[in-house]
C-alpha cells in the first residue's frame, strides 16, 4: 500500500526532485513518485500528468500542485511546489550575485558565451526531437514554420500568435480526429 505523505515529506521529496535535475526535472519527479516512494503507480502518474501537460506553464510545478493536493489538500498544493522551487531559487540567486560581482570579467563573459552556445544547440536539438515526434507532419509542420516566421522573424506578440495558431492548428487536429 502506498503511504500517505505528510507536509514535511512532500516538501522534502519535492526539494530533492528540484535539486536533482539539470535542464528539466520531470523524469526525476516520476522516479521519486513512482519508483522510489511509491506514492502512485505509473498509470496514476501518467493520468495526473495529462492535465499538467495539457495546461500551459511549467509542467513539473503543475505536477507538484496536483500531488500536493492529492495528499494534503490546499496546504499540500502550496508546500509541494514551494519545496520544488525553494532550493533551485536560492541557488540561482547565489549565481546571480556572483554574476553581478564578476559577470563583467572577460573570463566570465567567455564562459557564459560558451554555455549559451551549447544551450542554443540543446534548444535546436529539443525542437528537432519534438518535431520528429509529431504525427501527420504534412498537416502540422507548416504551423511550426508559421510560428517561427511570426515570432522569430516578424517579432509579433506571442499571445496573439498562440491564440490564432491554436485555433488553426487545433482546428485541423479536430477535423483530422473526426475523419479517422
Amino acid at each position: 500500500m502506498p503511504s500517505r505523505p505528510d507536509l514535511r515529506a512532500l516538501f522534502l521529496a519535492f526539494s530533492s526532485v528540484g535539486l536533482s535535475g539539470f535542464g528539466g526535472v520531470l523524469p526525476f519527479a516520476r522516479r521519486m513518485l513512482v519508483d522510489e516512494r511509491r506514492w502512485m503507480s505509473g498509470e496514476e502518474f501518467n493520468a495526473q500528468l495529462g492535465l499538467c501537460q495539457f495546461l500551459p506553464g511549467p509542467n513539473v510545478v503543475n505536477l507538484a500542485v496536483v500531488v500536493g493536493k492529492r495528499y494534503q489538500g490546499a496546504l499540500g498544493a502550496i508546500v509541494a511546489p514551494v519545496g520544488l522551487l525553494a532550493g533551485p531559487f536560492a541557488i540561482v540567486l547565489l549565481l546571480a550575485l556572483l554574476y553581478d560581482a564578476y559577470g563583467s570579467l572577460p573570463l566570465a563573459q567567455g564562459m557564459l558565451r560558451g554555455i549559451a552556445a551549447v544551450g542554443c544547440g540543446l534548444l535546436f536539438a529539443m525542437a528537432w526531437r519534438m518535431g520528429a515526434a509529431i504525427k501527420d507532419k504534412p498537416w502540422f509542420l507548416p504551423f511550426t514554420a508559421l510560428v517561427v516566421v511570426a515570432i522569430a522573424g516578424l517579432r509579433w506578440p506571442m499571445p496573439a500568435v498562440m491564440i490564432a495558431g491554436l485555433l488553426l492548428s487545433g482546428g485541423v487536429a479536430y477535423w483530422l480526429l473526426g475523419r479517422k
Binding site: 495539457f54 549559451a116 525542437a127 515526434a133 509529431i134 517561427v148 482546428g171 479536430y174 483530422l176 473526426g178
Partner: peptide, 27 residues
C-alpha cells in the same frame, strides 16, 4: 474528449516553433 485531444495535438507544432525561435533568438 475530441476537443481536448485536438488542443493537445494542435499545440505541439506551435511549441516546436517557439523553441526553435528561442534558439535562433539566443544566437
Amino acid at each position: 474528449k475530441r476537443w481536448q485531444k485536438a488542443i493537445s495535438i494542435g499545440v505541439a507544432p506551435l511549441a516546436v516553433g517557439l523553441i526553435f525561435s528561442g534558439a535562433t533568438l539566443i544566437a
